[in-house]
């Protein structure tokens, strides 16, 4: 069995998609909340014209993390015409829906309305947009923000989602390469959760890892079209380190800056501390070096031991290099081929 087979097994363990059984409760909650939010906004004269998933569920980059909540990022869009000048007004309507449904800690944050559903390990983020001719504006402002801190801020959530999901620049086996990129995002997220303290991990934003690895992604497929996630991850991490995200601040400290590739083009790490940047840079450097070690190593068990240390116990270490019997058969019923003679 190859190291790639181990990566696939690891990925199967950590990936979280909307169709997963673990996500069933979240999915159902999402559906019912959406229904209630639509109803409430309509009654208040702000009919919902669109809604869509944001975040990792919309880009298939979500991961399971024991002890962590399942996230729902459900964007709500109201029409531009008739929308209130005060963006917090609609956020308050959504907040009330959540409070009425028994959510603890429901509150209005600057970019969204958020709540936790403790018994089901759910964390809900509801950003609200208004839309006109395809242009979106995000309702920004907290419950008690001053007028200066309340605004409809230009944003391009669908553009960002499409940018992440775009495979048009990959030449040959584009979908395979896109899937490999998304696996790499998941690996990096799991690495972050395993290697950083909880407090710092929260500041190494998932969207930053997603954007950085998208911009620096280096695919690796072998002559049989088999992905080599190990090499792709190492090459991508290497390029992340050598791109201009990290700037040296002296005294072995770094600042990290990653610009959103779509409107509002803001720095994802705006206001981030030197500690976050330094830890991020140093741990990414160690990751690269560990991956180099794994590539150099020829024994499968030793490779897996290093990766287990990097990613945690979901990356399994086999008892020997040749014990595992492979699953032999394809799970597809049929596949169209181009073969003739």
């Amino acid at each position: 069995m190859s190291i790639q087979a181990k990566f696939i097994k690891f990925h199967d363990k950590i990936k979280l998609s909307r169709e997963d059984s673990e996500y069933k409760d979240a999915r159902e909650k999402d559906d019912s909340i959406l229904k209630a939010v639509k109803k409430a906004l309509k009654e208040e004269g702000y009919p919902v014209v669109d809604n869509f998933l944001q975040g990792s569920m919309s880009t298939s980059t979500g991961i399971k993390n024991p002890g962590e909540d399942f996230d729902i990022d459900r964007a709500i869009v109201i029409a531009f015409n008739g929308s209130p000048d005060d963006p917090v007004k609609v956020k308050k309507i959504v907040l009330k829906v959540l409070e009425d449904r028994g959510f603890k800690n429901a509150k209005i944050k600057k970019p969204c309305v958020t709540a936790d559903y403790t018994s089901k390990n759910l964390h809900i983020d509801i950003p609200i947009y208004r839309e006109q001719n395809g242009d979106y504006e995000l309702a920004v402002g907290k419950k008690n923000s001053s007028d200066d801190n309340r605004e409809w801020s230009a944003s391009d959530p669908k553009g960002l989602r499409d940018w992440i999901n775009d495979s048009s620049l990959y030449i040959g086996s584009a979908n395979k390469k896109l899937e490999q990129y998304k696996r790499i995002v998941r690996y990096l997220k799991r690495w972050r959760d395993n290697k950083f303290s909880t407090a710092v991990a929260k500041k190494v934003f998932s969207i930053a890892l997603t954007v950085m690895s998208k911009q620096q992604f280096r695919s690796s497929l072998d002559d049989s079209e088999k992905a080599n996630d190990l090499v792709a991850l190492r090459d991508t991490v290497n390029d992340m380190l050598h791109a201009s995200y990290f700037s040296f601040q002296g005294n072995e400290q770094y600042r990290v800056r990653v610009t959103l590739p779509k409107s509002p083009w803001r720095d994802i790490f705006d206001g981030s501390s030197l500690n976050t940047g330094t830890q991020f840079y140093n741990k990414l450097t160690v990751l690269k070096s560990k991956l180099d070690q794994v590539i150099e190593e020829t024994d499968l068990v030793k490779q897996c031991k290093i990766l287990n240390e990097v990613f945690g116990d979901d990356f399994e270490v086999p008892s020997s290099s040749s014990t595992a019997k492979k699953a032999a058969y394809s799970t597809a019923g049929a596949s169209g081929t181009s073969q003739g003679a």
Binding site: A227, A327, A328, S330, S338
Partner: peptide, 19 residues
């Protein structure tokens, strides 16, 4: 290439499957 199990089309092919 994706599952590393027995596939239905050859991994030598130059044309992507299911077209």
């Amino acid at each position: 290439p994706d599952t590393l199990a027995r596939g239905l089309g050859s991994n030598l092919n130059f044309i992507e499957p299911n077209q």
